[in-house]
């Protein structure tokens, strides 16, 4: 009797640890397959689509060449039915030009992006020249982002990134003093659902969320995300202005562990920009 009880407990434990994989792709209605049969192949995101049933709404699309290098991106707006945002990337040595006043710098060895410059004209007649300086640790994880406005020699904002292994768990955005907190994003993972390196989950990627998934900013998380919570603070008085909470569920994962679909519920994470509702991921494998 006692033995049966332990077997039952073991069964329950195994059940709770077993990931409930979706066997059929809800988009195609077909059984899930591997994206690639080549062991040496890697797959990179080629588009991110917002879905309603089988209808695709907003779509971010990366144009990649045969070596998966991103040559351009389009952001399709489902309301205006136009390409709302379009970029092409021109590679000149370590510099990637997007326009005369917008460029990236890529580390020649690691391929990590270490600088991003943009002339922000969105404040009406005011123009701000903003330099983002991405700092990596020795293993190549993004640990800090320094933001300089108008050629200031000291940073005006500082972001810090904390990891558990290669999985980002906290993003903190501070004023330039490095003490006054403006925002914090915390990520909870499902440790039982291991994926291929998926997406970047920097909660403060306001400047880069459209192109961040096309380039290298260090390792990507390899666990399925369960929840993301961001808290926005009043910089001058310290009180919380708002909290954005997003739950991730309904993962559709290929047999070779690429995330094909996920459903985000709750608030949009504005620093990640794209992920709300049901999101579909397409890949290019080389």
């Amino acid at each position: 009797m006692r033995g049966s009880f332990y077997i039952f407990i073991l069964f329950l434990t195994l059940q709770s640890c077993t990931k409930e994989y979706v066997q059929t792709d809800p988009l195609t209605g077909e059984a899930l397959q591997s994206l690639t049969t080549k062991d040496s192949a890697t797959c990179q995101i080629s588009s991110i689509r917002q879905m309603s049933g089988k209808t695709s709404f907003n779509k971010l699309e990366y144009q990649r060449d045969n070596s998966s290098k991103v040559m351009g991106l389009n952001y399709y707006d489902s309301i205006s039915k136009t390409v709302d945002y379009k970029l092409s990337f021109q590679y000149h040595g370590d510099t990637i030009l997007m326009s005369k006043s917008e460029w990236l710098v890529q580390d020649p060895q690691t391929k990590n992006i270490n600088k991003y410059f943009v002339r922000d004209t969105s404040n009406g007649i005011l123009v701000d020249d903003i330099l983002y300086d991405y700092k990596y640790d020795l293993p190549g994880k993004l640990v800090q982002k320094l933001i300089y406005y108008n050629y200031s020699t000291v940073p005006d904002y500082i972001s810090k990134y904390l990891y558990d292994g290669n999985n980002l768990i906290t993003t903190q955005l501070f004023a330039g003093d490095g003490i006054t907190k403006l925002m914090q994003t915390d990520i909870t993972y499902d440790i039982n659902t291991i994926t291929k390196p998926w997406i970047y989950l920097f909660g403060d990627a306001f400047e880069s969320y459209r192109f961040v998934q096309g380039f290298s900013f260090g390792p990507r998380s390899t666990l399925a995300v369960k929840k993301i919570v961001s808290t926005i603070y009043d910089a001058n008085y310290g009180n919380a202005l708002d909290t954005w909470t997003t739950s991730f569920s309904g993962y559709v994962i290929s047999k070779d562990q690429y995330v094909l679909q996920v459903t985000c519920d709750g608030d949009i994470q504005q620093g990640m920009g794209l992920f709300l509702g049901t999101i579909r991921f397409d890949y290019q494998c080389n």
């Binding site: 907003n58 306001f206 519920d265 504005q270 620093g271 509702g277």
Partner: peptide, 11 residues
């Protein structure tokens, strides 16, 4: 709270 955005989409 909207954080420096000009294309606000709320689910």
């Amino acid at each position: 709270y909207i954080f420096n955005e000009n294309n606000i989409r709320l689910p």
